[in-house]
Amino acid sequence: MNAFKQAMSLVFSLDKELWHIIGVTLRMSLSSTAISCIIGIPLGVFLGSSRRFRGKALLMRILHTLMGLPPVVAGLLVFLLLSHSGPLGSLKLLFSVEAMVIAQCVLIIPIVIGLCASVIGINAPRLLETANGLRLPRTSKTKLLLIENKVPLVSVVLTGFGRAISEVGAVSLVGGNIQFKTRVMTTAIMLETNKGNFEFAIALGFLLIMIAFIINFAASFLKGNSYDYY
């Protein structure tokens, strides 16, 4: 209980390192969520609304495998890619926030594509039969698919964000958990707990949950009210 009190005083004392960590965490997870959605949602909408084509089943199987990719494996891949002797070593991105964002995108893009495709696939056949019968142009059809699935798509984005903000393995591998540079909430909690520095860890854990709560709350406004009653 004493540790909890100290944790709260850390939260409200605007501890410099604490706020830096939160800043990096938000920058990283918002960037990787945004990039993953910009790439993943169009692909997911395409996959979910397209009819069977050659290779689609194989593609979906690969996608579902990638959705369960262990974070450390994604981290290792990006690490090798960005390391000194790796193919992208000249970019000198290893142990930077950018590297962490790249690793997270490797993890999150398949999740966004896969979930988006399943969500869209539920009512796409019926919606498209009607829309094609009306000979609507492709842009209208895409717009209708997005409007129709607004609520579940917000959930897809939130799932991506949840993955980004809670992930440890990949970001500690490629970010290196460097103080005042690439240390994020999850890697900091790991470190401080290992050091026995529980107040700091609890403060971070508390804030992590608060952030998740606030973002979900904001999203429920975005989803809007719906009058479904069954």
């Binding site: 009512n123 019926r126 009607t130 019968g133 129709e148």
Partner: peptide, 10 residues
């Protein structure tokens, strides 16, 4: 132009 048996209300 075609109206399916079960039409979709947008």
């Amino acid at each position: 132009y075609y109206m399916p048996q079960i039409s979709f209300g947008f």
